[in-house]
């Protein structure tokens, strides 16, 4: 009886010991995996996600790496990352300089996605924001050199919206114009056709993941000249130019100079 008891307690201790070891091993592995996954949140700058993919950290929780989007891509644009690629293994991406997105009207990749990692609410491809084209090399871009290459502008599926040509005086010749390709983030879907078409050895215009391409204003900062930021219909600058039509309840004149320079 007594012997039985000791045997029970020994085997229980052994069981506990084994379980603790296993649990520790598993949590260490889990921890390592967790840390590893955090490193992967920043996407390689040349890898562009398919249309409808959200922010990288959301995408990695939603994409099951099944490749159905790749299969339904009619242009073989999309591919799944291999372990040697600078993209999380098994997830879909494309490289604009290699094969850009052709912006299909029916967005088959989004339709194919079983998990909603590619947002099913994206039904108009013009609303896609896969990345943002940036004319990154203004020293070698032929248009910046004063030539009329215009290729990126011509191939842009949203020509005159996503890319416009902005005229500027050519200081070098002092008699010609520069027509500078200019990307507008309100329209650019990040399809990458401009980067693909750029005639340089290495593209002067490149599509970058949006978080790389864009800055962000301070949250408290309101550009006063925009309609949505006007206070009672008065923009921050309008007071400088003229008194508002409707007088606002204030002891001060609309012109700050009146107040600032007024004799006491």
């Amino acid at each position: 009886m007594k012997q039985d008891k000791t045997r029970v307690s020994v085997s229980r201790r052994r069981f506990l010991e084994k379980s603790v070891k296993a649990a520790c091993g598993a949590s260490l592995l889990g921890l390592g995996l967790g840390l590893h996954s955090q490193r992967s949140h920043s996407l390689s700058p040349t890898a562009i996600r398919p249309p409808g993919a959200g922010a990288e950290e959301d995408f990695l929780g939603a994409c099951v790496r099944c490749g159905l989007c790749v299969r339904d891509c009619p242009y073989d644009t999309l591919k799944l990352a291999k372990i040697e690629d600078d993209v999380v293994t098994g997830t879909p991406y494309f490289e604009a300089r290699d094969i850009p997105c052709e912006m299909c009207d029916d967005i088959p990749c989004v339709v194919a996605c079983p998990t909603g990692a590619l947002d099913p609410d994206l039904t108009n491809i013009d609303d896609a924001r896969m990345g943002l084209a940036v004319l990154i090399d203004q020293e070698n871009c032929l248009n910046f050199l004063g030539l009329r290459c215009d290729v990126c502008y011509r191939v842009c599926p949203l020509i005159d919206e996503a890319i416009t040509l902005e005229r500027q005086h050519n200081e070098r010749t002092d008699k010609h114009a520069l027509l500078l390709p200019t990307v507008h983030s309100d329209y650019c879907t990040g399809c990458g056709k401009c980067e693909k078409a750029c005639v340089l050895e290495d593209a002067a215009i490149k599509v970058l993941p949006i978080q790389l391409a864009k800055g962000e204003l301070g949250r408290h900062w309101r550009p006063g000249w925009l309609d949505e930021n006007k206070f009672n219909g008065i923009s921050a600058q309008s007071g400088l130019e003229k008194t508002p039509d409707k007088a606002v309840e204030t002891p001060f004149s609309g012109n700050p100079l009146d107040t600032l320079n007024a004799p006491k």
Partner: peptide, 11 residues
């Protein structure tokens, strides 16, 4: 997976 917000084992 919950902590990192990713499908962790797929790494």
């Amino acid at each position: 997976s919950a902590v990192t917000g990713t499908i962790i084992w797929e790494f």
